[in-house]
Design a protein around this nucleic acid. Structure first.
Lengths: 188, 188
DNA sequence: CAGTTCGCTCAACAGGCGTTGACTCAACGA
DNA sequence: TCGTTGAGTCAACGCCTGTTGAGCGAACTG
């Protein structure tokens, strides 16, 4: 695809954006290893060499594609924490951004994606832990995140029959007691 | 490695076992794609061609390596279900079999591993659902499994700081209320 | 002891991968 | 108008992969 008649800067911007979109889609669908630069370029209607020219390497393309905006920190109550967690990871409002799916899809098999995942999860855990009382606040916060991670993996990545088409409110309703037990002061 | 002086049948048995052990270890460590037949053969001190001769293809080797014995079905009470779930996926008694780790490591990026994972998880969900009352027994059972999956992924595969070295009883204690809420009749 | 079997190795193949450097040509600036 | 820039292409490179077929030599069989 060569969109003619456009200023150079605009063409470049659009091509870069198309490549990033294709990269996110393919990384999310099949993971880092199976998503080839050739396939990404084809979907973006661009030559594979252009991908290299713009992003330097497949690894750098991946990092650009999965980069997520850091979440603003803010003090939360214990109750808010539960609702916040339930809103994480795309159960609420349907879809998760492709960039997050791409990171999750690759995090078990691509070392660099694992680093990103640990970083993102760690930041969220820190954030939650501030609102959870007790010595083991970080452990409790981590378990809350892992619960959401597990459900999201089953739902979005493994596409389990039992979770397909279930309204997000129902899942949230079933998960809430467990998350409240983790967020609340009691629980021992 | 050629162990001399052994009967042919015994040599064959040992080589096959060494290959399977190496395969499980490498699939568990780096996943299907990054675990090359050459690396597996090297670790088993064997020629790569022998792996093909014995198992036919990398795919068949993977299937043999991750094959898990089907779990015996048995009727359980709701309380037993919770303890059973907490015992799943290797939180109890430390380690999970390498074959399970291999399957989990690859399930997001290797289609065949995803099929295996869905099958194994589906069987466990069916089993749990029999002991959970209500219309949404299968959904509740699925969420229980996903909780354990998430925690196990964080613990065994992502190796999160927050979960490292935490005694299994502590994690079980923190997770129990949430699992009981899912297993119990009330919860709406 | 001769002949066969078979566990195992060796060397090579074809194909796909990330990556590169030379090239084309339309948009640009003076 | 004309040289320069830079977006985009093309063809190829070296490497690594799963996989194969021929062959060796020790364990077997009679």
């Amino acid at each position: 695809m060569v969109e003619k008649g456009l200023p150079r800067a605009e063409r470049r911007r659009r091509s870069e954006e198309r490549i990033l979109a294709s990269a996110r889609a393919l990384f999310a669908e099949v993971g880092f290893e199976r998503a080839t630069i050739r396939a990404i370029a084809k979907q973006a209607e661009v030559d594979p060499a252009l991908v290299m020219q713009y992003f330097g390497s497949k690894q750098e393309l991946f990092q650009r594609a999965v980069r997520v905006a850091p979440v603003a920190h803010g003090a939360l109550s214990a109750d808010e924490v539960v609702e916040q967690v339930l809103g994480t990871l795309g159960l609420k409002l349907g879809e998760l951004p492709q960039s997050s799916l791409a990171m999750m899809r690759s995090m078990l098999t691509h070392p660099e994606a694992a680093v990103s995942a640990r970083k993102v999860l760690g930041e969220q855990i820190d954030r939650l832990a501030q609102a959870v009382p007790g010595e083991d606040a970080r452990l409790r916060a981590a378990l809350m995140m892992m619960i959401m991670l597990g459900v999201t993996v089953g739902h979005q990545l493994l596409d389990l029959d039992e979770l397909r088409g279930v309204p997000q409110e129902e899942i949230a309703r079933l998960l809430r007691p467990g998350l409240q037990a983790l967020a609340g002061p009691e629980g021992s």
